[in-house]
């Protein structure tokens, strides 16, 4: 028993949890902003994939990692704007548009990647982000090497959580976002532009989703593969529900998921060789479904989620 315990709380394991949680935290916060404004973004899976592709490509062509991150963020914002155009400006079904954005973005990612890099026997890779130990903090026992010896993008994700909470709960814009998500008609009466605020929230969400994509292809795998996202976007949507549309709880949900994911990776590696590793890959997804079942009864979504706003209609 204690051997198992020791294995779990190794530094490497904690570091793995943080690394797995990072793209999920970005994606979850991004989806949360969008949903708090009343817009479900099912395009997240495809937007992550396209951002991972543009980020990887920009870095591969320019040699600059941060230029790649910028490309990924801009991609996310652009696709967010596209989703907002359909769902906010035109008021189309958020469910179906989101699936459309995902199909379109993934198709575009595959198409452009194949066009730029051709079909190579060894997939091209880049020299991705390297760990950046923070002086003093990284020498704290256990926690130091796990949390403070990470990629720059990990620190950005950690800082993004309080920042997101501050923006959502403590700024006038955050108040507007919450108003248009809860009661757009009241927000409109109070002089808040529902359309503009929703656009801004979905685009900001897109930027964060773009960072999630950038992390996958530029820090975690250092390459773009067609399976680079493989369901993480859908998981992020579930984590927003699990985190009850709150930045802190959503980030906590991402950590919890990352714990389960890291655990199954350990189980794959440790002696259970006769079980195919794919069996373990199912576990985080089953966990997420069960967690949603447990949480959803009490979860209260933003009241105007999924509802388009048209001023003239009452």
């Amino acid at each position: 028993m204690s051997a198992v315990f020791e294995q779990i709380f190794q530094v490497g394991f904690l570091a793995a949890i943080i690394r797995i949680a990072t793209p999920l935290a970005f994606a979850t916060l991004g989806e949360m902003f969008s949903e708090r404004a009343g817009v479900l973004n099912l395009g997240i899976e495809g937007i992550m994939l396209l951002s991972a592709m543009t980020g990887f490509t920009a870095t591969s062509l320019s040699g600059s990692l941060w230029l790649g991150v910028l490309a990924a963020v801009l991609t996310g914002m652009l696709m967010g704007a596209l989703h907002a155009l359909f769902t906010v400006a035109l008021g189309l079904s958020q469910h179906v548009c989101g699936i459309g954005v995902t199909l379109f973005s993934s198709g575009l990612a595959y198409f452009l990647y194949r066009l730029i890099f051709g079909q190579q026997s060894v997939p091209p890779s880049i020299k991705g982000f390297e760990t950046l130990p923070i002086p003093v903090l990284s020498s704290i026992p256990v926690l130091g090497p796990a949390v403070f010896n990470q990629f720059a993008l990990v620190y950005m994700a950690i800082l993004a959580i309080p920042l997101a909470a501050f923006v959502l709960y403590r700024t006038p814009w955050g108040l507007s976002v919450r108003m248009v998500g809860e009661n757009p008609r009241a927000a409109d009466s109070a002089g808040v532009s529902v359309i503009a605020t929703r656009f801004q929230a979905v685009i900001l969400g897109g930027a964060l989703i773009g960072l999630a994509g950038a992390f996958l292809s530029m820090a975690q795998f250092n390459a773009f593969t067609f399976g680079v996202v493989s369901g993480r976007g859908w998981v992020a949507i579930a984590l927003v529900v699990f985190g009850r549309w709150d930045p802190w709880r959503s980030a906590g949900a991402a950590l919890l998921f990352a714990f389960v994911d890291a655990l199954q990776l350990r189980m794959q590696a440790s002696g259970l060789g006769h079980i195919p590793y794919e069996a373990f890959l199912m576990l985080p997804f089953i966990f997420t479904i069960v967690a949603m079942a447990v949480m959803s009864r009490n979860a209260v979504a933003p009241s105007a989620l999924l509802k388009p706003f048209r001023r003239e209609e009452r």
Binding site: L103, F104, S105, S106, G107, L108, F111
Partner: peptide, 8 residues
């Protein structure tokens, strides 16, 4: 992959 883009 053009067919995927066309679908979306």
């Amino acid at each position: 992959f053009l067919s995927d883009v066309i679908q979306g």
